[in-house]
Design a protein around this nucleic acid. Sequence first.
DNA 1: GCTTAAAATTTTAAGCTTGAAGTATTCAAC
DNA 2: GTTGAATACTTCAAGCTTAAAATTTTAAGC
Lengths: 159, 159
Amino acid sequence: MGVEEKSQAMSPQTPSKERLRLWLRMLRVTRQVEAELREKLRVQFDSTLPRFDVLAALYRHAEGLKMNELSRQLMVSNGNVTGIVSRLVEDGYIDRIAIEGDRRATRVCLTELGRAAFAEMAEAHEVWVNELLDGVTEEDAHHMGELLHRLPAEPGAAR
Amino acid sequence: MGVEEKSQAMSPQTPSKERLRLWLRMLRVTRQVEAELREKLRVQFDSTLPRFDVLAALYRHAEGLKMNELSRQLMVSNGNVTGIVSRLVEDGYIDRIAIEGDRRATRVCLTELGRAAFAEMAEAHEVWVNELLDGVTEEDAHHMGELLHRLPAEPGAAR
DNA sequence: GCTTAAAATTTTAAGCTTGAAGTATTCAAC
DNA sequence: GTTGAATACTTCAAGCTTAAAATTTTAAGC
């Protein structure tokens, strides 16, 4: 492996304004969509995006998740999860359940109330997203999804 | 204009899982890239993304911006801008300048220190983004940028 | 069994973010 | 010129977010 051969091998491509422009555009679109979703969640369900995210993760895991796993799935700090979960517990949407054989960890699980509340929100959420991304055809959506699939390039490498 | 004619007219397309999947993927990539950029800004420049954003907006407008305009450009609340600007003023990166003939408004402007500091950060920032989006060819970046250009569909319509 | 390191979580301080309420200031209409 | 709405901004309370420190519990080596 003496010399670079193909495009894959010499990872850092020509630095381009094109990728910077793409990033700024993704950032703008993401922020705008998030702002609209937040507003709708607030007005129609008196809720927030972080709460929605936590409920969504737990909805996909009926057996519940450890705080640890929740934090990793949502890509937020563990201290952050503690706060959001605490408020959701207060509201009766989720339960903290002791884990047998390890008193350090806690499993968090949707209550019936939480499950029902999320199901309703999720339905509306899917419609909202489709409206907001209306300008993208199903085909383009698929194509972009594929391109985004393995981004960003392995974090931690190539510094 | 009695009846819908082409695809543009009948805006709500078939609701698809494909657009929802695209949204979730954009969200994931955006969060991950933002996390890496935040970390680098923190470690290498002892700064944050919101501060970088404010400096960037002011860098593009040598004549300065009103708090109002800053808030609109960054798509954040005006109360938010007040806080970030206050801290940047304390650090000597920007100045508040009175506006002649309107004592309600303030113009905010980079100091020499701020301009120099941002120039340095911006250079590193461009490299970081290129590394993080290394998996996207320049051509794909251009294509995706075009698709994102007019998203989301006019906010406020089609509810 | 003791000691030490590792793991899971919470707490803390600081900053970011919002929506709403509050404070000046300007503008428009009379 | 006074009143009243509109504009520009700040303040406020609540929640989100992080990194770092602290707490509790488990696991490993001796």
